[in-house]
Each structure stands twice: as structure tokens, then as C-alpha cells.
Computed example of a mutant assay.
Amino acid sequence: MTLRWGILGTGDIARAMAAAVRARGGEVTAVASADLARARAFADEHGVLNVYGRHHDLLARPEDVDVVYVATTNDRHHLDAHACIEAGVPALVEKPFTLDLERAEEVAAAARTAGVFVMEAMWMRFQPAFEEAERRIAAGQVGEPLLVQADFGIAAVPDRDRRWFARELGGGALLDVGIYPLTLVTSLLGTPTQAFALGELADTGVDASVSVAMRHGEGRLSSWSCSFVADTGIEATIAGSEGSLRIHGPFHHAGRLSLRRRDTVVEEHDLHGAQAGYEHEVDEVVRCLEAGRTESERMPLALTLTTMRWLDELRRQVGVVYPHED
């Protein structure tokens, strides 16, 4: 199936997705931005025919696109997802799905009622490293998984005008990079039952660094951190009764796994396909739409809602409040 994609937003991730769509044989046929000049520049760069200076104008002719990728700022995701659903157009919504659980539940309910495909673009879950880690854990290579540790920290220059640090745009480390370790530990250990978070806020009021400890039922714990100011690396380790599995950095699209027992690395495994990046989630969208699905089994809305529920709780604990919550 050759899908015609529309893209809302023109940032770096939209550019990467446009390349991934083309690499998988799809077409980007429309782009929209609040800045018409940016939309035109994007269209010139990627050979896009239809250009719009207002986001939802792209949806005025829903018969011209088969699916829309929502790559706008975090604060707009729920608005743009709703617009796609109302137009009857499937949507791949960049993470975080929305700013909070209430909005996420509203989008999910609208999609389910309308029977329109919607999926959060958590590309990590479609990566070869993630799938290989799941396979090895299921095969008992580390015994019962009991502890997951992960870090996702990058040292960005604090800038109140940059989306990452802008409270009005839904900035903060938790929603942008903390969502990866949270999704990882939830996927591998099960839904959290308890969480404790400590955080440091930027002067804009968003979280700059957060450390989290979680319980995932009896005997299963996780500890993870995220940061926009500390260069922690981006690695993860899953430990069990028989050994541990290291997902080398960057763990959300790693190219290597290591299996360790006691003090010895017993296997190093290089993975193929990590370089494909966003192409794996493009494949999932195509697969779901070809099958007539309104949700992905691999990235269901239920997982998105669970993740958002705990992001809300962690934000509450560290004291991050977005303008719509004031």
C-alpha cells in the first residue's frame, strides 16, 4: 500500500519522518505550519505539492491524504489529533501523545468512537533492539526480570525560547525524553504500582532533571532518570536472577545488546536495522491501515494512557504545572 502522508509541523523530527516515509515507498503530499514560509521551505526541500499556512487547512480535503503525522509542539498534539479524527483521517501523533491524561483520554475516546486509527509515535517499541530484548527476556536468558535501570540525559543549552524549556509549549525532560525510560520499564516489568520522583526545575518552570524509582508489583523495581542539563548517556540494563541484558546507547534505537552473567559478558549481539530509524513505525502504520485496524497491537492506546497517567503523577511530584492547569 502506497500511503499519501500529510505532515503537521516542520521541525527536525518532521524532516526525519518525511525521509522515512519516502524510504518505505510512501509519499508526502501535504505539509502545514503556522508559518507559511517554513511550510514552503519544507515543501521545497522534500518535494511536497500541497502547502498550507494554517495547520488544519491540510485537513480541508481529507480525500487528498491517507494519514497525517502530527509533529507540532507538545501543547498542540491534542488539538491536531482531534482535528484529524473529526476529518476521518488516521493519525500518527508524536510523543508525548498529549500534555496530560485527561486530554489523552479524550483523544483516545474520540478515536475509538469514530473508528479512526490513532497511534502515538513511540518509535522505540518498533526498534530491533527493543524487540530482541523482549525476545531474550521471554526466553529466560536473564531469569525472571527484577530490576530495570535506564538513563536518558542530554546536556542542552538552557533557552527559554526553545521548545524543550518553554512551559507554554509543554516543555520539560519528562515529556520529551523521560517518556522513553518510562515506556521501557512499563513494557518490560508491567504497569507501575508506586513511584517516587525527585526533580530540579529550570527557571522557566519545567523539569530540567528528574530521578525516578518505581515498583511494578511484588519483587520488580525500576530506577531511571531523564535530563536536559546532564549528559548521562542513554543506556538501559535489565537484570534478573540469571544475569543481565544491557541495551547499549542510545537504548531507544540501539545497535548492540550485551548479555552478562555474574562478572562476565557472555555474548555481544550486533543488531541490523537500527539505522532505519523511524521507518519501522512507518511500517507499523502501513500494516495497521492495510489490515483495517484502528489501533496498533504493538503500540495500543492503553499503553499510551498508562504512560500518560504516570507522567502526570511524576510531574505532580516534581512540581511542574502547565499553563492550562494553572
Rank of each mutant, 00 (worst) to 15 (best):
L184P: 06
T2A: 12
L101V: 15
L257H: 01
R135N: 13
E200N: 05
I85C: 10
T2G: 11
G178E: 14
L146D: 00
A213N: 04
A239K: 03
D159C: 00
R167E: 00
K95S: 12
L305G: 10
R4P: 06
E131I: 15
L314E: 12
R38K: 14
W123Q: 14
D159L: 02
R112W: 14
A239C: 06
T193P: 09
F251M: 04
R293K: 10
A202M: 02
V51T: 04
S258G: 06
P90M: 03
L147S: 00
L174H: 09
F117R: 05
L146A: 02
E290Q: 14
V107D: 02
P181G: 03
R54M: 03
S244T: 06
H56G: 10
L174N: 09
I7K: 08
I179G: 09
A109P: 07
D57F: 12
L221K: 03
A32K: 01
V28L: 03
D203L: 02
L184S: 06
F228K: 02
E242D: 10
M299G: 09
E242C: 06
D203I: 01
P158T: 00
E279S: 12
L314D: 08
R220A: 06
D159G: 00
G255L: 01
T29Q: 08
W123D: 14
S258V: 04
T307E: 14
E281F: 11
G115S: 04
V177S: 05
L92F: 04
E284Q: 08
E120F: 06
L146F: 00
R260P: 02
W5E: 04
L259S: 04
N74I: 13
R215D: 15
L99W: 08
C84S: 08
G217D: 06
D12E: 12
L305C: 13
V282I: 12
A71W: 10
G143N: 01
K95F: 13
A155P: 04
T237C: 13
R261K: 02
E102M: 08
V107G: 03
T294K: 07
W5T: 10
D207S: 14
D57W: 12
R40L: 08
P128Y: 10
I234Q: 10
A111N: 10
L257D: 00
E106N: 07
Y322I: 03
V321N: 09
P158M: 04
H56T: 15
A302C: 09
S222Y: 02
R24Y: 01
A129F: 11
A129W: 11
S258K: 11
L182M: 15
A111D: 11
R103K: 06
A111C: 11
V318I: 15
W164N: 09
V142Y: 07
A254L: 03
H77V: 00
G205H: 05
H56P: 05
V286G: 08
L245C: 05
V148L: 02
V93Y: 03
R260M: 05
G190H: 12
V318C: 12
P323M: 13
L303R: 15
I85T: 10
G255W: 00
T98M: 05
